[in-house]
């Protein structure tokens, strides 16, 4: 397995492992709505961050970004950003659904947790790359 392949699939792989852990431990999803509203807020903030990062990336013209672009990596960065945004969207939508359905249904908690982990790791992947891009701005 190459590093690039792992970089591409790790949010899903980690999410799958965590889903199995959740299924095995079968914890009870909190009954009140607070966790849903907190999740929605965090999800919305992170989507906003990724959208800003995407606009920033489009205006960046640094040697490291040029090298990445020449080597064909720009498609990967764009796809990581896209995945981050879409996963967070699905996470927010699923969380919103929690207001209208019985959250004690075991599959709700399992799906919510899986989406949470996948979107978190997808977000962290973009953050790490963006921070490194800024750190290496002039090199």
């Amino acid at each position: 397995m190459t590093n690039l392949f792992w970089e591409k699939i790790h949010p899903y792989a980690v999410a799958l492992c965590c889903a199995l852990l959740w299924y095995w431990c079968a914890p009870e999803f909190p009954k009140d709505d607070e966790i849903l509203s907190a999740s929605l807020s965090v999800g919305a903030i992170l989507i906003g961050f990724l959208a800003t990062a995407k606009s920033l990336l489009m205006t960046l013209d640094t040697p490291v970004l040029k090298r990445l672009s020449d080597a064909g990596y720009i498609k990967d960065i764009a796809s990581y950003m896209g995945e981050g945004i879409y996963l967070l969207f699905v996470f927010c939508a699923w969380t919103m659904l929690g207001y209208f359905m019985d959250t004690s249904w075991p599959w709700f908690g399992l799906s919510w947790f899986t989406l949470l982990i996948a979107s978190t790791f997808a977000f962290l992947r973009v953050t790490r790359i963006m921070l490194k891009l800024f750190a290496k701005k002039s090199s």
Partner: peptide
Amino acid sequence: HLTKEDRTKGTAVFDAMDIGDKS
């Protein structure tokens, strides 16, 4: 020097940023 071959060989984006770095 970072090239398209690095991507084909499976170098991750995070690692690719170090390749060809001036420093």
